[in-house]
């Protein structure tokens, strides 16, 4: 139990550090949001007025305190660029609110696909006795690993979209309109992200299974009279999963970040495009919030990986105690 409590405490501390880092980095990097907003109409007086209006004249720690207080209440500030109406700028939470669920769904979908595909291929591959088949698996996974997701995305659009007409490229379906249509569309970009990752996961799992298969405890299980199937499912797999879990942790982080590119290819209105444009226009409240989101998502995933690790491998728990 101590192991889990310790991991939770670590998570909280890390999240706090991340919030500080995200805030302060954007105070340091060059580029002035005020100058950017006013453009050619900038005069010293106007700049001063806008600065006061945005609260940028206060010292950094005070601004951090105000920001983090807002974040705790779900208020992420207002965009410098997008206007709600003539008088008011749009709030970041409204701006992101629509897009975040899309990106999250995309990430979760591709993660599920990675796990299913990776485990299925890995187990079948490890179990295949024919040398030819082994080589075929090797070539296919090697190839799949080498193809970048965005290029795979183009191939998928061409094959599934244009030839097979299983979806209409560019015709994103919002979940407000049709949940089935929403998933029916997202499944393809998710697949584009899942293919290279699942190829890697399959390789990892296959190697781990083969390695575990040669260990002494498997011989012990055989000497007890266990069937091959029992040895695979009860003994080998649980041990072989351990390195794969670590690997999956890094994959999930990559999926969250990688969705940015794939969203562009499939014209999915996720946070990807918003992030890129906000960085170039120095729309700091938006960028801060998105970075915070990505960092938190990755940290939470690592936390979950640690917890799963502790459940699967009893040695982890007692090492930490």
């Amino acid at each position: 139990m101590k192991y889990f409590a310790k991991k939770t405490l670590t998570l909280i501390i890390t999240l706090f550090m991340i919030s500080i880092a995200t805030f302060f980095v954007f105070q340091i990097i060059p580029g002035d949001a005020v100058a950017n907003m006013l453009g050619t109409e900038a005069t010293p007086e106007r700049e001063e007025a806008l600065r006061q209006q945005l609260g940028l004249d206060k010292p950094i720690p005070v601004r951090y305190a105000a920001w983090i207080k807002g974040v705790a209440h779900g208020d992420f500030g207002r965009s410098y660029r997008y206007a709600e109406n003539m008088n008011e700028m749009m709030s970041v939470s409204r701006l992101i609110g629509d897009k975040l669920p899309v990106t999250l769904t995309l990430a979760v979908l591709s993660l599920i696909m990675t796990v299913i595909l990776g485990f299925f291929i890995g187990i079948v591959w490890a179990g295949c006795k024919s040398r030819t088949l082994d080589a075929v698996f090797g070539i296919i996974t090697q190839g799949a690993m080498a193809v970048p997701s965005f290029f795979l995305g183009i191939l998928i659009i061409f094959f599934f979209g244009i030839i097979l007409r299983m979806f209409t490229p560019g015709q994103y379906v919002s979940y407000h309109d049709s949940v089935a249509g929403f998933f029916g569309y997202l499944i393809f970009p998710a697949f584009a992200m899942a293919v290279p990752k699942s190829a890697m996961a399959a390789r990892f799992l296959r190697n781990a299974i083969l390695e575990q298969g040669g260990l002494d405890y498997v011989r012990t299980a055989k000497s007890k009279g266990c069937t091959d199937r029992r040895i695979m499912w009860r003994h080998i797999l649980r041990n072989a999963i351990i390195p794969v879990i670590t690997f999956m942790g890094t994959v999930i982080a990559e999926i969250v970040a990688g969705s940015i590119v794939v969203e562009q290819v499939f014209s999915v209105p996720g946070i990807g495009r918003l992030l890129v444009s906000s960085i170039s226009t120095r729309d700091f409240p938006v960028v801060q919030t998105l970075i915070l989101y990505i960092a938190v998502a990755v940290m939470v995933v690592y936390y979950i990986v640690d917890i799963v690790y502790g459940i699967v491998d009893p040695r982890m728990r007692s090492n930490e105690d």
Partner: peptide, 16 residues
């Protein structure tokens, strides 16, 4: 027929 092996440290499944 049963067998005992040399390596007591590795002959048991570590996750069971």
């Amino acid at each position: 027929i049963s067998m005992i092996f040399q390596e007591p440290m590795t002959s048991l499944n570590p996750t069971m």
